[in-house]
Design a protein around this nucleic acid. Structure first.
Lengths: 347, 347
DNA sequence: CTGTTAGCGCATTCAC
DNA sequence: GTGAATGCGCTAACAG
């Protein structure tokens, strides 16, 4: 069966290009992969043939033969949550630029699905993976990472060294938020954290306390409470309790924007005006921040950047095998809007 | 080089399984693909070997040889937008159940990227694709669809017949929203649409007008205005203009939730209370709807269902080649919250 | 029912 | 510098 040089029927293959250019497929492969050992004219001829036939390499074949699949797995708890969506978006842009594509794996926060999915990803479909908020333990991740390039983004709990991870500078962000409040004259500054075992809680708490200490403000344990990170009655109740304190705070630093919304609702329910009676700072700079009235002062996490950084780290892992900085923290930024104001003079 | 039966080094292959089970690789392939023509004991033996070796088929090899890749492309304008995220989430769930995976292609609303991405998807990486809001013309889509199974979700403009598409029942949803307002006694009901060339605008407008007509309410052209679908000053201005009419509406049907937020802001700026002075209905039931104060009455689109439906349509396309219902409209649902109330008696 | 034989499209030694 | 040959892991006709 002679192969037709003119691609009329099916997709162009390397063979067609080779014969059109009057060279062997090996040579075509070389120029396709940017090898240096090809004569300029030969390269030229091949490229022309490639162009004429609209050829592009079949990734499956390449994967089977060479190893690389050009696909990167991304596990994500929930696709519809824009928080993760933004990280994903950053990662996807970076990958697009590298001419690689994403295999999406929504885990729904279920450990079992993570395991299944990762297992599948490893079975030749994918060159590596970006993991968001995995429920895996450090041990599992470490074992995984031994046979499969992986980087974790925004881990929920503290991970062992040796596991590549990129996250936001929680402590620094929290410090900035607290300092902002302090600079407005607030001294009784409440903090509503997330789940105590999460990094996002502990690290931000460190920043909060650090800022207070640096300003010589005595921390009041009554002004620190935990909540989950969601909007809802639970969060509002926590906020309410704090506002009902005998000596209530004049400002509250909510450890994420959802919590901040809860605080605002609780305040409204008590007839407190924001920011006049109570200043509120959030964390994340989610879409909420612009929607809410008044618009929320908050700490922006570089979510998209984290996604980009994760893939660039992963890419280096795929090549060098050895990278110097395995753990990366990206700076946050305080976004001042309308929910914070100088503390009221008379109270 | 004799292949080691015990898989100690690398990943198990079909060959290893075959020799372990004492059969040929062809037989293994058969049971792997659920072919009926295998003796029960043979099948049993093979399955045991598969289990013992922790074998699973290399998808690249299968793709190269057989055709199927087990991958479905999904183009999405912006991953971080939860509107699309929810559709994606539905699609991804359905795909997960089918043991297929998503190759994600964010297009950023750029036609050029869509073309590039689709081109790549077709080059053997993917078995078919789900397209969200493509900028492609009907002609392009039709050509595409000829050589590549594709279904469009939530098209922005009207598409030629023959192109498989799943969308929400815009008109019916709008009718329900308008009827709700009518049942509350409203007669002067404004409508703020999206871009006039979008289906979401025209179809919903039909529903709005239909409901009005059915109730014997004369439509007032002054009560219909267009906006883009985003939150922002432009939308607020449109709403403001309508509220400043000599004979303003007592209710406004915003064609999506973003616009509804704009209406609420414009109303607040005029000292109008919602829902006492003005009822507002949105469309989409986005996250906003629950956040906004008062919480928004709106028409819920079955976004996740649309995603699921799109893949199930696609699956059938991949098998039968012929499907009866190529165009599917999913029902919407009116969600009544706090932004609508009976029309004020005295005005 | 089961084994044999060919490739799928490409990357990759090796020679030349 | 370039070409011929070999195999990646699997599916798909064919035979038997």
């Amino acid at each position: 069966m002679a192969n037709t040089d003119t691609n009329h029927g099916k997709r162009a293959t390397i063979r067609g290009v080779a014969s059109a250019a009057g060279v062997s497929i090996a040579t075509v492969s070389r120029v396709l992969n940017g090898r240096p050992d090809v004569a300029p004219d030969t390269r030229e001829a091949v490229l022309r043939a490639v162009r004429e036939q609209g050829f592009s390499t079949n990734r499956n074949a390449r994967a089977l033969s060479g190893g690389r699949t050009g696909l990167i797995g991304v596990t994500i708890p929930r696709v519809e949550a824009s928080y993760f969506g933004v990280i994903l978006s950053g990662a996807s842009e970076a990958l697009y630029e590298q001419d690689m594509r994403i295999v999406l794996c929504p885990t729904l926060h279920q450990h079992e699905r993570e395991v299944t999915l990762l297992d599948r990803l490893m079975r030749g479909t994918t060159d590596g993976a970006v993991l968001m908020l995995p429920e895996e333990s450090s041990a599992e991740l470490k074992a995984l990472q031994r046979e499969f390039p992986v980087v974790v983004v925004d881990p929920r709990v503290s991970l062992d060294e040796g596991i590549p991870v990129v996250s936001a500078a929680h402590a620094a962000g929290a410090r900035a938020a607290t300092e902002h409040l302090l600079s407005l004259g607030h001294r009784r500054i409440g903090a509503i954290t997330g789940p105590p075992e999460w990094i996002a809680s502990t690290d931000r708490l460190d920043g909060y306390r650090g800022a207070l200490a640096a300003a010589g403000v005595m921390p009041d344990p009554a002004l620190v409470a935990a909540s989950d990170f969601r909007v809802g009655p639970a969060t509002e109740a926590v906020a309410a309790a704090m506002l009902d304190l005998p000596d209530p705070p004049t400002a509250i630093f909510a450890f994420n924007d959802n919590v901040a919304v809860g605080v605002m609702r609780a305040a409204r329910a008590r007839g407190l005006s924001i920011p006049d009676d109570l200043s509120v700072v959030g964390f994340d700079d989610s879409e909420l921040a612009e929607i809410v009235v008044p618009r929320l002062t908050t700490v922006r996490q570089p979510l998209a950047e984290m996604g980009r950084m994760a893939v660039s780290l992963l890419m280096r892992l795929l090549e060098n095998q050895r990278v110097d900085a395995l753990r990366i923290e990206l700076a946050t930024k305080l976004i001042v809007r309308e929910s914070t104001a100088p503390v009221a003079v008379a109270r």
